[in-house]
């Protein structure tokens, strides 16, 4: 049995951002989709305003979907190629019946395009006629159309040029400030996540292995995997090149029926017998900093 996401616990407060970091295939995206019930969970709870939405019926779910939105990684494949920019942004307004009448819808779409920084003249363009940054702005406008309170951002800048990445990140942060939206920000880019989130969760093979406030995680990483991730951030200096060490060896182990104990153990430099023991739980080492590691977690206590 493959568990793409297995026993992950977290909470996101209003107007805050949780960054979710991990390598390809660790279950970041599945986690995001499960929260929105685009993938049905086999077990567990998703609480929204204290209610477990995994038990909601389809009409109940559709009623709260306007509050919970999603921004995708690939801005082209996430936009219907047969619809114009206007139609794409108007679609949520039609589905949720947000606006009454054609004029109000025109106004709403125009103001949404303005909010995300898209010029009016693009409203009759098709997504493939625009560049990556503008496409992603369409995706953001679509997500904003229903006035959501929470948005899952699934690697929203990974497919963009570095110069555009900053623009999109700043746009997302401005929107958060103005509208108090909460984000779950999924990425494999640590510098991006540091920039945007107050709290960071590191995932490995479907499990949360470390969770801490951003500053704390970067200043004081505890899990060997987190340390290796941080060590892998390129530093633009000749000196740094010589000092670089601690790269992880080996491949991610098979996620089907994983062995008990720490899932990172086969690749870990600190591994010893006790790592194979049952149940490596998250424990709090200092305020708000949780880590799931037998070695470093204890050493710090």
């Amino acid at each position: 049995m493959l568990h793409a996401v297995d026993g992950v616990d977290f909470a996101i407060d209003g107007g805050r951002t949780l960054g979710v970091v991990g390598e390809s295939g660790c279950g970041k995206s599945t986690l995001g989709r499960t929260i929105l019930r685009l993938t049905e969970p086999t077990d567990g709870e998703v609480l929204y305003d204290g209610e477990d939405i995994t038990r909601f019926s389809v009409p109940q779910m559709n009623a709260i979907r306007r509050d919970l939105q999603l921004i995708f990684q690939d801005p082209l494949s996430s936009l219907n190629p047969r619809m114009t920019v206007f139609e794409i942004i108007a679609e949520p307004l039609k589905v949720f019946r947000v606006t009454s009448g054609r004029d109000e819808m025109d106004d709403r779409v125009a103001s949404l395009m303005k909010t995300v920084g898209l010029a009016d003249r693009f409203s009759n363009s098709y997504p493939h006629e625009l560049d990556g940054g503008r496409r992603q702005r369409i995706g953001i406008a679509r997500a904003l159309a229903s006035n959501p309170r929470f948005i899952v951002c699934d690697e929203p800048v990974s497919a963009l040029d570095v110069s555009i990445q900053a623009q999109i990140l700043n746009l997302l942060m401005d929107l958060q400030e103005e509208r108090g939206i909460s984000y779950m920000f999924i990425t494999h880019n640590l510098s991006v996540v540091k920039h945007i989130s107050q709290e960071i969760m590191v995932m490995y093979l479907g499990q949360c292995i470390e969770k801490a406030p951003s500053e704390e995680l970067f200043a004081n990483p505890l899990h060997p995997y987190t340390r290796a991730l941080l060590a892998a951030i390129p530093v633009p200096s000749l000196e740094a090149r010589k000092k670089r060490k601690g790269a992880i060896k080996g491949e991610v182990s098979n996620p089907v029926d994983p062995k008990p104990g720490c899932r990172f153990a086969p690749r870990c430099s600190l591994v010893s017998g006790e790592c194979a023991a049952e149940g490596v739980a998250l424990r709090e080492t200092c305020a708000g900093h949780f880590v799931a590691c037998v070695k470093t977690g204890r050493a710090h206590e």
Binding site: R65, S77, L79, N80, E91, V95
Partner: peptide, 13 residues
């Protein structure tokens, strides 16, 4: 399987 179908589903279409 395209993302825009997922986007439509996220809207409860």
């Amino acid at each position: 399987e395209q993302d825009y179908i997922e986007a439509a589903r996220a809207l409860g279409t």
